[in-house]
Nucleic acid binder design. Structure first.
Lengths: 343, 343
DNA sequence: GTGAGCGTTGCAATCGGTTGAATTAAACCG
DNA sequence: CGGTTTAATTCAACCGATTGCAACGCTCAC
């Protein structure tokens, strides 16, 4: 009834007639305590409804029992799906999840430079962020287990795993698909390839796009590239430009499903039928793609998060683990927004 | 270069020629330290790149400097938007955000009964969860500041704020809108009103729906209510049933935008034109509603999260704060899926 | 009967801060 | 100039667990 103070290990010790140390050992199932004593202590623990103070444990163990997740724009469906994978697995472990969302370049900088050093986490998961060289250097110093999900840096030293997708290959294959359909005039709607967050996926997909065109001896036309900030609205504007060109593309490759939606909207505005007059293909395969029947390249978002945590937990258990670089496969999901060009 | 051990407060004290206590006070801007000393200490802090160990602070202060967020299915767009509001404000505070996602009824139970007691957080935010009477009782015992966002319990004692939406009123107003358009045959597609998560929003909106019908002297027909688990796919099935009725509804009110999308899909399958042959209205106004031109009732998702944190932080700063119950407004956003019934 | 060995348990230091009380030094005043 | 106030700092206990080491009681062997 009364706001009774929290039960500590000493209370238990007193009630059980042993020392705090023994209670601690009993709680942690140390083989050093007698079975009877163990049972007796556990009974008292039950009675008093004792749960160890996590903060004290942390200090004592020198471990925080938490992992930090650094994630930009976690409300974006693709990101949130990765995060979902992270959460799903982490929930089964003893580790807490501390979230650091990034919405501005400043936040990005401070997260990447401070979080790994302030001893708030035993390990770090970074989602969709690519460290710069300087950042990578500094991160290496922290020597904190870190896993990069959908983001890589070749020079990262120390215990750093990576779970990525080959965006160049994905972009190339997707573009090739359009070429095989017969398209030669293919537009690209993506992020700013030089951006303060150092997001690289759009840029890499464009590199793949160029590669596919070159392989097919199709010239890469500068006016077919539209860079913009991420988002449906802005992608719509980008697409408007493409569709207003004298020699407009017959297909548009959007760097994400979100942007593809903007492209679809622009097409509707322009009175262009999809896929007859314009083919549109996205990237990610989030739910909206299914809803709209968008052809897209699927990547394993949920799995990437899950696998990232798996690697991190492995490293935490067993610090000797070797670095792992994993590349997850992608898959083209053909729906109703792509077709051979007209005529 | 070497993996130098972490700098502690004692190192700083030594280097600055003072005692650890003084360093502590200097770090916390206590007026008890001389200005010169303060400056000197801060210089050393800079040089050694010292940052206080948060875990140790926590133990010492008896505060965790973290708030826990309990949230079911955080990948659902409406939920993630609320969470976004939470994160946006919390990022500016000194508090960390520890996430507890709920995907099963068991997780729900354990979160609601354990989290508030394991001293891992100074305060709790609960999103879209309605405690049962028994849970409310137990929660009151924890006497931990807690804010319910989109979830309420009239009997919650202690320092508990609530930020909710009046779902009954929202459901009623939305239904009235359809009635005013001329509809009398209005279907309802929602969650199971009796569900293991104790989600209440769909049920409440249905209560409002009934109320609106009664006020307009329109009989409430049992066959016009379709309950199902949450989700687009299942909502589609529910809608199929409604549309297959001999006397099918001319309008369908979905308890969420996600479910409304399922309804739209069912309409397309059935070859029914929207809005001419079938009106559809959703709830939430998440992005998909905008994309699809769905008429819906907007609630302030982001703001609810933000306001919830605001209240929690207020309480943490100033434990004497009075309880606040807030009801956020909703607004009908008319787009292209609603029209008067045919004929 | 004494010492070695084993299984248990207690003791006390430790993790890295915070904070109330004690202490010192400077300042002020009649 | 002694006494008292005031400011600045140190000291040491404390938060609540963990853990290496010492110590204890017992058994068994020689």
């Amino acid at each position: 009834m009364a706001p009774e103070k929290r039960v500590t290990i000493r209370d238990v010790a007193l009630a059980a007639g042993v020392s705090p140390g023994t209670v601690s050992r009993a709680m942690n199932d140390s083989p050093l305590v007698n079975e009877d004593t163990h049972r007796r202590i556990m009974r008292v623990v039950e009675e008093l409804d004792y749960t160890p103070n996590v903060v004290a444990r942390r200090l004592s163990l020198g471990k925080t029992l938490a992992v930090g997740v650094i994630v930009p724009f976690f409300t974006r469906p693709s990101v949130s799906e990765r995060l979902n994978g992270v959460v799903s697995l982490l929930a089964t472990s003893q580790y807490d999840l501390v979230i650091h969302n990034i919405e501005t370049p400043e936040q990005r900088a401070s997260c990447l430079t401070e979080i790994p050093f302030n001893e708030q986490a035993d390990g770090i998961l970074s989602i969709s962020l690519t460290p710069t060289d300087a950042e990578a250097e500094r991160l290496a110093e922290a020597d904190l287990p870190m896993v990069l999900i959908d983001g890589d840096h070749p020079a990262l030293k120390g215990v750093h795993h990576q779970v990525t997708v080959d965006d160049v290959a994905g972009g190339e294959a997707t573009t090739r698909y359009l070429i095989e359909l017969g398209h030669t005039k293919i537009g690209f709607v993506g992020d700013h390839h030089d951006n303060p967050f150092n997001f690289t996926s759009s840029r890499d997909r464009y590199v793949g796009y160029q590669r596919a065109l070159r392989e097919a001896d199709i010239p890469v036309r500068a006016e077919y590239l539209e860079e913009n900030q991420h988002g449906r609205r802005l992608a719509r504007e980008s697409a408007r430009h493409l569709l207003a060109l004298d020699d407009r593309p017959t297909a548009i490759f959007a760097a994400s499903d979100t942007q593809a939606v903007g492209v679809l909207e622009a097409a509707r505005e322009a009175g262009l039928g999809v896929p007859d007059e314009l083919s549109v293909v996205g990237y990610d395969d989030v739910e909206i793609a299914d809803i709209l029947g968008l052809t897209t390249r699927r990547q394993l978002l949920f799995e990437s998060g899950r696998r990232g945590v798996e690697l991190l937990l492995q490293t935490l258990e067993n610090p000797g683990t070797e670095r792992v670089f994993e590349t997850l496969p992608t898959e083209l999901i053909v729906r109703e927004t792509t077709a051979p060009p007209q005529g």
